[in-house]
Computed example of a mutant assay.
Amino acid sequence: MWQYKADIPETHYQNQCVKLLLQKLGAILFSYELKTDTMSFRLVRGGMQAREIVGFRRTMNAERRLMVHPDFLEQMIAFFSGQNTERDSFLLDMGNPPTGKYSWYKFVIEQENDEYGHLGTVRGVMWRTDRLHDAAKEGGRFRSELDSVTGVANENGLLKEADRFLTGEGKKDINALVLVRLDCYGDLEKRLGKRGAETLLVRLCNSIGGKFRSGDVLAHLGDGAFAVFVRDVTSKPLLELNVKGIEAIFRPGNAEYGKYGMKCRITLAYSPEEGIRCRDLLNAARKKAPLL
C-alpha cells in the first residue's frame, strides 16, 4: 500500500488535497452571520479572493440586483436562516455585480449556535454544477416549470419532461404515471398554517421521491397532489407493490407523518395502452379508483 512520505505531515497532505479538490470544483467558501446579516465569500481559485456583503438578505431582494433566481428567493432565505435545510441546490448569479445569468450551485453546510443555543452562523462550501442560464431568455421557463414550494417540477415541467421521453428514447417502452393525492389538504393548512403546511409538503416530497429512481420525474401538482413519471417499467406488479409502500407513510403508526392524520389516494396509468402523452396518463390516473 502506498504510504505518505515521512517528511510530509498527514494533516498537511490532507489539507493540500482538499484545497486541490476545491480549486478543481471552482468552489466558494462562505460564512453567514445571522445576527448582523453579513455574508462572506471566498473563492478558492485565484488566491482566495474575499467578498463581504453586509445586509445580505436586503441585497438578495434588491431590484435588478437579484443574486438568487426569483423562484428560489424565499427558499434561499429560509435555508440561511436554518428554517429549511432539505434543499441543497439553488439558481444563483454570482457576478459582481449580478449579470442576470444564473447557474445551479450545490451547497454543503454546517450550522453553529451562539452562547444562547440559537443559530448564529451558517458556513460551508458551494460550487457550480451546470452551465449558465440567461434569465432574460430562460427565466420564464424556469418559473413556469418548477413548483415554488417544493422546488421539484410542477405540472408543466412534468408534462414537458415526460413527453420528451415518451416521444424519444422511451417511445417503445412501458412507462407509468403515479398519482398521489392527499385528502383534505385544506384542513392541514388550517391546522398548521400556510408555512407549516408547505414545510410538510417539502418533507413529503422527499419521502415520496425516495421511493423511485433518480431518473424518474417527481412533480408537485398543487394542493397536496404529487405525480411521478416512471420510466421503463419492467414489472407492473413490482411497481404497484412499491407504490403501495407510499401509503404506509400516511398510516397512524408512522413516526414521521402519522401524527398529522393524513390519508392519500394513489392511482396509476400506463403508456402506451392508456396514452402516448403524459397529459393522457395524468387524465387516466385522475379517473381511476385508488389502489387497494
Results as ranks from 00 to 15, higher is better:
Gly139Trp: 06
Lys160Tyr: 05
Lys160Thr: 15
Glu155Gly: 07
Phe142Ile: 14
Ser148Ala: 15
Trp127Val: 04
Asp134Gln: 05
Thr121Gly: 07
Asp147Pro: 12
Gly157Tyr: 09
Gly157Glu: 11
Arg123Pro: 14
Asp130Cys: 14
Ser148Lys: 08
Thr121Tyr: 07
Trp127Gln: 03
Thr129Lys: 12
Val149Trp: 07
Gly151Asp: 08
Leu119Val: 08
Asn154Met: 03
Arg128Ser: 04
His133Leu: 09
Val149Leu: 14
Trp127Lys: 03
Gly157Pro: 02
Asp134Ala: 03
Ser148His: 10
Val149Ala: 15
Thr121Pro: 02
Val125Gln: 15
Gly157Leu: 10
Glu138Lys: 06
Arg143Tyr: 06
Gly139Cys: 08
Trp127Pro: 00
Ala162Leu: 09
Val122Pro: 05
Glu138Leu: 03
Gly139Ile: 10
Asp130Met: 08
Gly140Ala: 07
Ser144Met: 12
Ala153Ser: 15
Thr129Pro: 07
Ala153Cys: 12
Arg143Lys: 08
Thr150Gln: 01
Leu159Asn: 04
Asn156Phe: 05
Ala153Met: 10
Leu132Glu: 13
Gly124Thr: 08
His133Glu: 02
Met126Lys: 01
Leu132Ala: 11
Thr129Ile: 14
Gly140His: 01
Lys160Leu: 13
Leu146Lys: 04
Ala136Gly: 09
Glu155Asn: 01
Arg131Ser: 13
Thr150Glu: 05
Arg123Met: 14
Asn154Leu: 11
Ala162Thr: 15
Thr129Phe: 12
Gly120Val: 11
Val149Cys: 06
His133Cys: 01
Glu145Met: 14
Thr121Val: 15
Gly139Tyr: 07
Val152Gly: 07
His118Asn: 15
Phe142Glu: 00
Thr150Leu: 09
Lys160Cys: 05
Glu145Thr: 15
Arg123Glu: 13
Lys137Arg: 05
Gly124Pro: 15
Val125Asn: 10
Gly140Tyr: 02
Arg141Asn: 07
Gly157Ser: 11
Trp127Ile: 08
Val149Gln: 02
Ala136Lys: 03
Glu155Ile: 03
His133Tyr: 13
Arg143His: 02
Asn154Arg: 05
Ala153Arg: 00
Leu146Met: 13
Arg141Ser: 04
Glu138Ala: 04
Arg123Tyr: 12
Val122Gly: 03
Asp130Arg: 10
Thr121Asn: 13
Leu146Asp: 00
Ser148Arg: 09
Arg141Lys: 14
Ser144Glu: 11
Asp130Tyr: 02
Leu119Gln: 10
Ala162Met: 12
Gly157Thr: 10
Leu159His: 04
Leu132Pro: 00
Arg131Thr: 10
Leu158Asn: 04
Arg141Cys: 06
Asn156Arg: 13
Glu145Leu: 11
Asn154Cys: 07
Leu158Asp: 12
Leu158Tyr: 11
Trp127Phe: 15
Asp147Lys: 06
Gly124Arg: 01
Thr121Lys: 08
